[in-house]
């Protein structure tokens, strides 16, 4: 019989996953880092180029701006949905649960095309509005930041719901009762007690959505129509169209570092706090 030290035993169970992660993520990423400092010649010129090229910087800024707006929208709407899901009547709860879960069955691509069909200049919404005589010329709802934000927020809202709902479930009903017994109005209980007590859920949801949104590719590519390029699409363009692999690799590494930093923050935020 093969003798294995006890502390190594969990490794047997973890090994397939570690090997997969190594082959699928760590190795390729090491390769990307390699490219970023060797292509077309050794040095850090790709990083200085990435951080000084006004075009690339503008893409970074747009990415940050879109992600921030998407985060605010998703967390706000996610909060409202979580409220219905956790505190609604049984019927409302079931319906909300369906609304939260159904989007998970539909692929990103399908959803992006769905929005395109709905929002494009000859899409459903514009046709209706024109048919009703409310507008004369079609509204520009896609192929711009607006379209990207709508599509991304739609995708992210269900993800925002889960951490918020879990924070809401852990709120002790008696604390709310206590506030009511002191004469606090419903609004007051909500703003002064309920929202602060679910703040960790809000923070968690915000970081989750933001980190997720930074790497979005399909939704901005389709709904932005090349006019509202985000970082992931920029990398794609630099690899398959320019081609400028060294620069694309440097931008990837910068993106990766930013996301890792945010994830570290997220984990720190979500880990149980010690008593101060």
């Amino acid at each position: 019989m093969l003798r294995i030290r006890p502390f190594l035993r969990p490794m047997i169970l973890l090994a397939p996953l570690l090997m997969f992660l190594g082959l699928a993520y760590v190795l390729p990423f090491a390769g990307v880092v390699g490219w970023s400092v060797t292509l077309p010649e050794p040095g850090v010129q790709n990083y200085s180029a990435a951080l000084s090229d006004p075009l690339i910087l503008s893409v970074f800024w747009r990415t940050l701006r879109i992600c921030a707006i998407v985060t605010v929208i998703s967390v706000t709407m996610g909060y409202m949905l979580a409220l219905l899901w956790v505190r609604g009547s049984p019927l409302v709860r079931t319906l909300t649960e369906l609304c939260i879960l159904i989007p998970f069955w539909i692929s990103v691509l399908t959803r992006a095309f769905g929005w395109l069909a709905l929002l494009s200049s000859r899409g459903l919404l514009n046709s209706w509005l024109e048919g009703l005589g409310i507008i004369d010329d079609p509204l520009r709802l896609v192929r711009n930041e607006f379209g990207v934000i709508v599509g991304m927020a739609h995708f992210m809202i269900p993800f925002a719901v889960f951490p918020i709902a879990s924070a809401m479930r852990s709120v002790d009903e008696r604390v709310l009762m206590a506030a009511r017994g002191m004469g606090a109005s419903r609004t007051r209980i909500f703003t002064r007690v309920f929202v602060p007590m679910t703040a960790t859920g809000i923070m968690g949801a915000a970081l989750l959505v933001f980190v997720f949104a930074i790497g979005f590719f399909i939704t901005p590519a389709i709904l932005g129509g090349g006019r509202s390029v985000m970082v992931a699409e920029l990398i794609y363009l630099r690899i398959f169209q320019s081609p400028d692999w060294g620069l694309a690799a440097a931008v990837s590494v910068i993106l990766m570092v930013a996301i890792s930093a945010l994830l570290a923050l997220l984990l720190k935020q979500l880990s149980p706090k010690d008593a101060k």
Binding site: V175, A178, R180, M197
Partner: peptide, 27 residues
């Protein structure tokens, strides 16, 4: 309940976890 103005101490305290002692009492 909110109009009765009674003082209530719940089983398990039911303090506001995000407020300090004085904020709890001031509420």
């Amino acid at each position: 309940a909110e109009k009765r103005g009674f003082g209530m101490v719940f089983q398990g305290y039911a303090l506001f976890p995000h407020m300090t002692v004085s904020q709890n009492i001031a509420f």
